[in-house]
Amino acid sequence: MKDLKHYLWWEGKRRLRTVRVFAVFWLAADLLLWALPQSACAWISRESSVLSLLLNGSMFLAGLALAWYPVFVAGASWFTPRRSLEQLTGVAVEKQILAGLLLNVPVVFLLYVQCRIGMGLMAKLAWDGVSFFQIALSWPDFWRQALWEQAFFMPSLYLFFYLLFGRRGWKLLAYVAALGSASLLEFLLTWEMALPAAWLPWVTLAAEALLCGLLISACGRIARRRGY
């Protein structure tokens, strides 16, 4: 467990560095919007479509990152191409995959928080009571959908197909396959309708957790066979 702990530490440090530019950018946008008086915001939304677009765009980026990061960044790029130094450490491939998936959780959480902050601040730019970001990310099932599915389950599906296809440049195909598999799983789980309503989310979670474990194991096998 000590090597997993160390691996989490160093991979976490690396991820923090990759997101620090975005973090500073969003912090600056948040502070600007918070400081601007309502009269100025009303003027911007009425008179300056460029400024309005820029501010909306920066917050839209947070929402986009929330959809894009878990799969295209968190899904495989931290694992492939293999980094020689990580290979030399001798930490088991499955532990590296698990560490990578676990680190997705705080990143997705922070992205979600930034989205919610942005939504709140964007209300200041509302014109006639309608803000571009009033198209809110209403996420009542946040913990399961965002922190589990987006941060953990979907990236593990994507990594599996990415390793299975084994070729660079097939990321889009791996993504489509991951989405298709997730949809198929949801369809297969419709038998759950026979279960009491209170059980449904837990049974789904258990099924996905079991599948995730199998996926991590499969990814480890494929990676070792390829000499990762």
Binding site: R14, R17, R83, S84, L85, L88
Partner: peptide
Amino acid sequence: SYCMPPGELPGW
């Protein structure tokens, strides 16, 4: 012990 080429060490 593999003395890695500097390009393969994390630049950060």
